[in-house]
Simulated scan of single mutants.
Amino acid sequence: MIRHDFAAGLLDIRRSVKASSPLIHCITNPISINDCANMVLAAGSRPIMAEHPDEVGEITAMANALCLNLGSITRDRLEAMGISAAIARENNIPMVIDLVGAACSSMRKRYLEDFIPKFKPTVIKGNITEILSTCGIECKSSGVEANRGQLVTGDNAREYGDILGKWATEHNVVLLVSGPKDLITDGRDTYLLSNGVSMMGNITGTGCMLNSLVAAYLPAGNPLGAALLATATFGIAGEMAAKKSDGPGSFHIKLFDEVYNMGEADIITKTKITKL
């Protein structure tokens, strides 16, 4: 169970989104695009999935948050992301970017070296290997999966929090490190979350779905809270879905149901969080 005052802040974000149904512009990959749209809907926001470079600027300008994803990237999508990010930056529209494959692709790494200082995303999300690579810290890549030897654990979380918190402060960003244990920091406050189940690794696109869930909560105006609420909600939904499913197929379906049906009491009583 989390503290009452802390829970109240997260629940305020949730209520704000459900009451206002903000528009979330998602430029994501074709592997997970449908799941990302449905996850945004399950949270109470509204998705729009435009990605043509000739229209994305107009779409982003009318949105309340921008969700970007480097997975299965194409030249057109890279161009579209830059156009949308520029509009978001100009209009103070919060954005989150998922660093899919940043540690295993020199092209994606170069893109981010230009993108992050130019457009200043609100939240940067990735697995530990992708985050370390983007922060210029030595890491070992294994495709788009995190290197298991570098995962965040209870033993190394404070060390990671110190290192990544410094980078987050320098770049004025919230970092969300996803994994079996999730680390979230804005440089001032750092949290370790332990919700979730191993079954989440048996379906494609869970990281992308989490990224879209962060975007769904960003319009409430509390980036750190949005990252914390999204991560807790997604992990709890995974735990609840696993109890009602027989395998990855039924788990996949139940995951959306649990996010949609989650009550405030679930957030309060089931969130496993430690402030470091």
Rank of each mutant, 00 (worst) to 15 (best):
R188T: 14
K166E: 15
M209C: 15
Y217K: 07
L175K: 08
E145C: 11
L193H: 03
T271R: 01
L164G: 07
S133F: 04
S212W: 09
Y160F: 15
K244H: 10
I268R: 05
G143M: 00
Y160C: 04
N261K: 13
T185K: 11
E130Y: 10
D186V: 13
T274H: 11
L193P: 05
Y160S: 04
A168Y: 05
S198N: 13
E258Q: 11
G207R: 12
G187Y: 06
M200P: 05
L218H: 04
A168Q: 04
N147S: 12
D246G: 11
L151D: 05
G126A: 02
F234A: 07
D246W: 05
S142M: 10
D186P: 11
D257H: 14
H252A: 02
V152D: 00
S245N: 05
G187C: 07
W167G: 08
I184P: 05
E138Y: 01
D182H: 09
L210Y: 09
A157C: 12
G201K: 15
Y260P: 00
K272Y: 04
I236H: 02
C139N: 11
L176S: 15
G205Q: 09
Q150D: 14
G207F: 07
S250Q: 10
P219C: 03
G247Q: 02
G161P: 06
G205F: 07
S133H: 09
P248L: 05
S141E: 13
P180A: 12
A220L: 02
I128T: 01
F256P: 04
C139A: 09
V177R: 02
V144S: 13
A242C: 13
M199P: 04
I253A: 13
F234G: 09
L176V: 15
L193S: 04
S133W: 04
G238F: 08
I253S: 11
Q150L: 14
N202W: 08
G238Y: 08
A232V: 06
T231N: 15
I273N: 07
V174M: 02
G161E: 04
G143Y: 01
I273V: 15
D266V: 01
W167R: 14
A216I: 09
I131R: 07
A241D: 07
R158W: 01
S142H: 13
A265K: 15
I137E: 06
L224K: 09
P248Q: 03
E258L: 01
V177H: 01
D266Q: 03
N211C: 15
I184D: 03
M262N: 00
L164Y: 08
S212E: 10
N261F: 08
D155Y: 00
I268G: 01
L132E: 10
K254M: 15
T271F: 00
V197F: 10
F251R: 12
I253V: 14
S142T: 14
G205D: 06
Y217H: 13
G249T: 08
A265T: 13
S198R: 12
I267C: 00
K244P: 05
A241R: 10
I131M: 13
A237S: 15
A241P: 08
M209E: 06
I163F: 01
N202G: 08
C208P: 07
G225I: 08
K272N: 10
H171F: 10
Y217N: 14
V177W: 01
L176H: 09
L218A: 06
G221C: 11
D182Q: 12
I268H: 00
A216V: 10
N261L: 14
M199Y: 11
A265Q: 12
T204L: 03
E145F: 12
P223E: 06
S178M: 04
D189L: 11
N211R: 05
